[in-house]
Structures are given as structure tokens and as C-alpha cells.
Design a protein around this nucleic acid. Structure first.
Length: 774
DNA sequence: GTAGGGTTAG
């Protein structure tokens, strides 16, 4: 239910009868001890969360005062029952300013500020509490100038008004303005001093905070706590401890601040000693100690505390959940998630991040669906997790739906979610949408720019990548080392050799970026692709660190392109030394041998792989059809529609042979029998996926096939509207698919200008099961 | 008797 509409009409209806109510009613105005006693009881029930008890008491009261209603109203609001609060408000016979203020506060914190503003405008009588609610609730939403507006509007400002305005500045990081307000008058109380002090602590200005602390007229326990926790958070445990020992009074806050200070600064034993000495503990203290163990991955100790603690709250469960997740114990994390009595946004975000970072793409998506079913608000963190999962498995349709949802949620312009969105579009090969999303982002950070540059570079759009880089240089965002990796990769992929070399040697001077191994890898790749193998090799010898397997891999790839088997072999040997289990390298070297017909060497590689227990990752291809992901492997016989698919392929094969097509069996890089080779060409996973796409996707719509393997030394195979030619044995089925979608089965067999058809060799992850709805 | 401002954990 939307409260605003009902509310406005309710307020309007009663505005004309309010003067009578304000004048009071003789029977109600009289002191009634019994009513007051029951009002107190209602408040007590509500504060303890016993809404039903309060309701029972309320219903049984023979006489009520406006305070009775107000107590119920405040109780409903505090227990998250906003719709009930609104309807109760409408039933109050003679609402007073108290009633209005209570509802105003409830709207401001749990509904929308617009609703609160509407009620504010209609309030017949306003007092300083009314203004104070408006000041602090706008401040809490970051709307400092509106907070200031209500502050100035207030005819009478009490201590809370001044402190509210002070807190408005402090909480939004505007410490200078807070100081200005503070200096403008002298009548400040302890809360004001503490607020300003906390402001300095928050922005790390401990000496200014200390000066306030030393000069303040009166210190209460909060003042000490603010300073102790401030020092603790900045890692100054010596000073934190000194103040802790000097404090005249210590409460749970003081103790907990010291415990979490030691914990966060890696002083586990000290943390535990203080924790054990605590005279009184609350859930926060327990959580702080648990977090200390969690940080050190000491999950058994954390669990022991968790089981011991008498009063667990959501944060306690969340601490265990994130602990298991960060330790890679996803099963335990999920068990916590499933058993916790109550979940909040942190719980969902932690579980999503656990799956997403653990590479469990399917579980991430399922959990996200569950999140929607539970009515949980999808926050920025959840969007970012799920988008990065969509990127992992190149699930474009799913990602685009998320894009729509996040725009509606108002997250489209920020860089936290925006960067994940860009990465998703690039991973799915959708440069246009990435560019559009990038242009719509209101805040761009260095990651946004880097994502764009690397994204374009990775798909071979070097010029576009460099254009983005040039635009970036006109902004205030400074390029970092990752930016330069993208720039060098862009030069490499678009053959801008001299430009790349020039960036490499000037980047330290121009951008203060020192060459890291990643930059050298780009340069080896760049020189190697250009056929300057000797220079690439020399650069490897001259660089200030040992070459790693990625660098040798770049050299190996280049050796293959420029047909230098000797260099290729020595590069491969280095890689086998460094990474004896890197299956990709065996396959790559094996392919070098195969392409020159050295089947015996290919055989040796296979024996080597078996001896060393190297497992080749099986190749999968998949396709999204109506929000379902269909996965295929070579010669697949699991898919429910396999008969249809194979029959269709047989038919295609017949027509191709009639048109004079001969299978390019020599390109199948396995030493297998001729017939077997043909079978592999006919039924390799990409082809099955394309066939399924042709059968199930309406003509005119793109068929996007994604595969998990991305072979080194070969560029992406993308057949696009522009008809890029494809130098792989897989060309034929795709050209064929393109042609049969354009209903010219044979005549367009060797041209690729049919409807859009894309093959993404994206290195995506294979989903665990098939044909599942996302 | 009922509403508004400062300190701790994830």
C-alpha cells in the first residue's frame, strides 16, 4: 500500500476540524491515572517488539487519550508496520502535534521524504520537533541543503535543531561547514562537542579531534568512547589504550572499541584478553571478537564464540556467513544462510558475493531469483555480484534484464554498479551497449575508464580503445598501471606497434606508471604479433624480473603465427617447467605440431599429458534461448531435443555435400581416423549449439553461441553483420547457418552476410546443469 | 504517558 495518497487525503480531511481538537475536550483533558498506566504498558510492549500484546491492551481499553493512540503509532512505526501506522493515524479522533510528528518521523525513515514533505506542508501546527525531524531526515539522505532549508525555516531553534544541523554537516563529510556553524555561536552542549569531534575522527583528523577533546567544557562517556574508537580505528592502539585506562567511566562501547581495535590491527591475543576481561558484553562485543577470528580465517574459534554467545543478532550470523565465504567454505556459508532466523541486505549480499567470487555462477543466479521471491530489496552490491556472474558466463539476455531493473532502481548512473555493467557487456561482446551505458554514467572512476579501454582492446578494437584513452586524458581521472595495460593491449591488437613502444617507454614520465610484468607481457605480445620475435625475446632478457609463463605463452603464440617452431618449442619448454599442469600450453604446442603434420610429436604430447596427469578442460558451447541456457559438448547426447538437432545437422550435411562442400578434416587437430574427424567436425559443441539456435530462435534475431575454451594464438571468431571472415575449421557450419537463416541454403554458403550470428570465444564458464531457466 | 540530536560490530 502506498501511504502517501491515503495520507494526504486523511490530513486534508481533518485540517478543517482541527481547531476544535486543539482547543481540547474536557473529559479527555482530565488526568486519568489508569489511562496513563496503560499507555506506559503499550509503550513497554512495543519497545520489546511485542506488537500483538500492545494491540490486545489497546483494544481492551475502555477509555483512551490521544497519547494512547500516539504510543500505538510510534510502536507500529518502530516495529516496521508503516501501513498500520498510517491507518491508525487516520483513526485518531483528535490528533495532536505529537501524532503528526510521530507519523512524520515514521514516513521520513521508512517511506519516502516526499511523503514526509507532503505531510509537513499540511500540518496545521508545527513545533521545533517537526522541523528537527525534517532537518535530520534530509541530512540522513545526504540532502544537506534541504536540511539547511528546514533549519532556517524553523522559527524557534532549540538545542536539537542546532545539533541536527551540525550532524547534517558532519555525517555528510562537510567538516569545514560543521566547524563554521560551531564557531558561529557559543551555547553548545556535550552532544554538540561530541558530534564535531566524531566528525574529525571520521575524516582522520585525530589532532583536531584531540584538541576539541582536551578543551571541551564537560566530558561524558561518549566523548571518551569517540576518542578511544577513533584512535583504535586509525591503528593507534597505544593512545587508544592510554585513554581507555584514563577514562573515569567505561561502558560496553569503550570496551568494545578496544576489542575491535586490537582485532582490526591484527593483535588477536590482546583483543581476546580485553574481551575476556569485559564486565558486560552486548552482541556487538561478541561480534567484534568473532570478526577478529574470522579475519584470521580461524573459523573454529569463531564458531565456538558464536555457539557460546547468549544474544545473537543478524550481524553475528552475517559475520559467520562472510567468514565461511572468505575461507572458501561455501557449503558452511550456505548452511548459515539457510538457518539464520532473519536476513538483511548484508546477508544476501554476502551470500551472493560468496557464490559469485567462488565461481558458482548458477548458484549466484538461483540465489538472486530467490532474493526476488523473498521480496528483498536488490541493493547495489547484489546487482554488481549478479552482473559479474552474467559476465562470467556471458549471459547477455539476463544481463540486459538486470540493466533494465537497475535503471528502475536508480543505480544506472553510479560507477559501483555501472562498472560491473560495462564489464558484462564487453564480456558478451556487446560494445555498443557498453558504450551507451558508459556515456550514461554520471560518475566515472578510474575503473570505468579502464574497463572501457581493456574491453575494446580485448575485442580487437584498438582505435576505439585509444580514443577512450584520449578522452580520459582530458578529464581529472589519472591513468593508472591498469589503464596502461589496456592501452598497450589496444596497440598490440590493432597493430600500432610504434605507438605501443612509445607509450611503453614514456608512461613513467607521462603518467608516473612504472612498468610491471603485465606491461612487459603486452610488449612481448605486441612485438611478437608484429613478427619482431627477436626484439620480443631480447626484451624478456633485459627486463628486471624473471619471465613468467604468460610471457612465454605470448612468445609461443607469436612463434606459431610467424612459423618459428624452434622458438616455439623453447618457449613451450619453459612453460612446462613453470607450469607443468597448464593444459592450454600442451594443446597449443600440440597444435603447432599438428599444423605442420608432425603427428608423432602430437602423440608424444598426449603421452606427456597423461603421464603428468594434466587434464584437458572439455570444450562446451552454450546458447541462451528465452532465458534458458542450453549447454552442449562434443557429440552431445544429453539434450532433450538431441534427435531433432542431429536430424537437422544430417540434412544440412547432405545439402552441403550436394553443393560440393568437403569437410576440412585436415584441420581437425587430433590424430584420429578420417571418419572420426568428420564426426567431430559435424558434431562439435559449437555446431550443436548453433543448430539448436537455428531451430529455436526466430529468423532475424541474433544467434549467440558462447564457448568456454579460448585457444591461445587464435583471435576471436566472430561472425557479425559485417561478414568478418573466419580462419578456423569451424567456419563452414556458421556460414551455413547464416545462409540457411537467410533462406538461401546453398548460394550464400561461402559468404557471411546473412542475419547477425555471433560466436563468442569468450572463455566463459560452463554452467553445472543444462537447460535451466535463469 | 507519546515524537527529534552525539559513541561500538557485519
Amino acid at each position: 500500500m502506498r501511504p502517501s495518497r491515503h495520507l494526504r487525503s486523511a490530513a486534508r480531511q481533518r485540517s478543517h476540524r482541527l481547531p476544535a481538537a486543539a482547543a481540547g475536550d474536557a473529559s479527555e483533558g482530565r488526568l486519568d491515572a489508569e489511562v496513563i498506566r496503560r499507555n506506559k504498558a503499550i509503550t513497554a510492549h512495543m519497545r520489546a517488539g511485542r506488537v500483538a500484546d500492545a494491540e490486545r491492551l489497546f483494544a481492551a481499553m475502555p477509555r483512551r487519550s490521544t497519547s494512547t493512540y500516539n504510543a500505538m503509532l510510534a510502536g507500529y512505526a518502530a516495529n516496521g508496520r508503516l501501513p498500520l501506522a498510517v491507518s491508525l493515524f487516520r483513526a485518531i479522533p483528535r490528533p495532536d502535534t505529537f501524532s503528526y510528528n510521530t507519523l512524520l518521523h515514521a514516513l521520513a525513515v521508512s517511506s519516502s521524504l516526499a511523503d514526509a514533505r507532503g505531510l509537513f506542508d499540511e500540518m496545521p501546527v508545527k513545533d521545533s520537533v517537526t522541523y528537527n525531524v525534517m532537518i535530520s531526515s534530509h541530512a540522513n539522505h545526504g540532502l544537506v541543503s534541504l536540511a539547511r532549508h528546514y533549519f532556517e525555516l524553523a522559527p524557534e531553534k532549540d538545542a536539537v535543531s542546532w545539533n541536527g544541523m551540525l550532524a547534517a554537516y558532519v555525517r555528510n563529510g562537510r567538516i569545514e561547514e560543521a566547524r563554521g556553524l560551531f564557531n558561529s555561536r557559543t551555547e553548545w552542549d556535550a552532544i554538540s562537542w561530541n558530534a564535531l569531534m566524531a566528525g574529525y575522527v571520521q575524516c582522520g583528523k585525530m589532532s583536531e579531534a584531540r584538541e576539541l577533546f582536551d578543551t571541551m567544557p564537560a566530558r561524558d562517556v561518549v566523548s571518551w568512547n569517540t576518542m578511544v574508537s577513533g584512535y583504535a580505528r586509525r591503528g593507534n592502539m597505544v593512545e587508544a589504550r592510554r585513554l581507555f585506562d584514563a577514562a573515569p567511566v567505561r561502558d560496553v562501547f569503550t570496551w568494545t572499541a578496544v576489542v575491535s581495535g586490537y582485532a582490526q590491527n591484527g593483535m588477536l591475543e590482546e583483543a581476546r584478553r580485553v574481551f575476556d576481561a569485559m564486565p558486560e558484553r552486548n552482541p556487538v562485543s561478541w561480534n567484534a571478537m568473532m570478526a577478529a577470528y574470522v579475519q584470521r580465517r580461524m573459523m573454529d574459534e569463531a564458531k565456538e564464540l558464536f555457539d557460546m554467545m547468549p544474544c545473537r543478532n543478524v550481524a553475528s550470523w552475517n559475520t559467520m556467513l562472510t567468514g565461511y565465504a572468505q575461507a572458501g567454505m561455501l557449503v558452511e556459508a550456505r548452511a548459515v544462510f539457510d538457518t539464520m532466523p532473519k536476513r538483511d541486505a548484508v546477508s544476501w549480499a554476502a551470500m551472493l558475493a560468496a557464490y559469485s567470487q567462488g565461481g558458482c555462477s548458477e548458484q549466484t543466479l538461483w540465489l538472486f531469483v530467490e532474493m526476488g521471491r523473498c521480496g528483498e530489496w536488490v541493493n547495489r552490491s547484489a546487482f554488481a555480484c549478479v552482473l559479474s556472474t552474467c559476465a562470467d558466463i556471458a549471459a547477455l539476455e539476463c544481463g540486459m534484464q538486470l540493466h533494465g531493473r537497475l535503471i528502475r532502481a536508480g543505480y544506472g548512473v553510479g560507477c559501483f554498479v555501472g562498472n560491473a555493467l560495462l564489464a558484462m557487456y564487453f564480456k558478451c561482446g556487446n560494445m555498443e551497449d557498453a558504450q551507451n551505458a558508459f556515456e550514461e554514467m554520471e560518475e566515472k572512476d578510474v575503473v570505468s575508464w579502464n574497463t572501457m579501454i581493456a574491453g575494446y582492446a580485448r575485442h580487437g578494437f584498438g582505435k576505439e580503445a585509444l580514443q577512450i584513452f584520449d578522452t580520459m586524458r582530458t578529464t581529472s581521472t589519472k591513468p593508472d598501471d591498469i589503464t596502461l595495460v589496456g592501452v598497450l593491449a589496444a596497440c598490440s591488437h590493432s597493430g600500432l606497434v610504434e605507438k605501443g613502444i612509445s607509450y611503453f617507454y614514456s608512461m613513467h614520465h607521462d603518467f608516473g606508471v612504472t612498468a610491471k610484468p603485465e606491461h612487459y607481457t603486452c610488449m612481448i605480445d605486441l612485438l611478437g604479433r608484429a613478427g619482431r620475435l627477436a626484439e620480443a625475446h631480447d626484451l624478456m632478457k633485459d627486463m628486471p624480473f624473471e619471465p613468467d609463463s604468460t610471457m612465454w605463452g605470448a612468445l609461443l603464440g607469436a612463434s606459431r603465427i610467424h612459423r618459428n617452431p624452434e622458438l616455439g618449442r623453447s618457449a613451450a619448454e619453459k612453460i612446462f617447467e613453470l607450469e607443468p599442469e597448464n593444459a592450454g600450453m600442451y594443446v597449443l604446442l600440440s597444435n603447432i605440431y599438428a599444423s605442420s603434420g608432425k603427428w608423432r610429436d602430437v602423440g608424444k604430447m598426449r603421452v606427456m599429458m597423461e603421464e603428468r596427469g594434466v587434464k584437458k578442460v572439455p570444450g562446451f558451447s552454450w546458447i541462451e534461448v528465452q532465458n534458458k541456457v542450453h549447454t552442449f559438448s562434443v557429440g552431445d547426447c544429453v539434450h532433450p531435443e538431441k534427435e531433432k538437432i542431429y536430424a537437422f545437422l544430417e540434412e544440412l550435411d547432405m545439402r552441403m555435400k550436394k553443393a560440393g562442400y568437403v569437410s576440412a578434416t585436415d584441420m581437425v587437430l587430433h590424430d584420429v581416423e578420417e571418419e572420426e574427424k568428420e564426426h567431430m567436425l559435424k558434431y562439435h559443441s559449437e555446431k550443436l549449439a548453433v543448430a539448436y539456435g537455428i531451430l529455436n530462435i526466430p529468423p532475424g534475431r541474433p544467434i549467440r553461441v558462447i564457448k568456454n575454451l579460448r585457444r591461445l594464438g587464435r583471435k576471436l571468431s566472430v561472425i557479425s553483420r559485417s561478414g568478418t571472415s573466419i580462419p578456423t575449421p569451424h567456419a563452414a557450419p556458421f556460414l551455413l547457418a547464416a545462409s540457411c537463416r537467410s533462406r538461401h541454403w546453398t548460394s550464400t554458403l561461402l559468404t557471411a552476410n546473412g542475419p547477425p550470428l555471433e560466436l563468442l570465444s569468450s572463455g566463459g564458464k560452463v554452467l553445472g546443469s543444462r537447460g535451466r531457466t535463469l
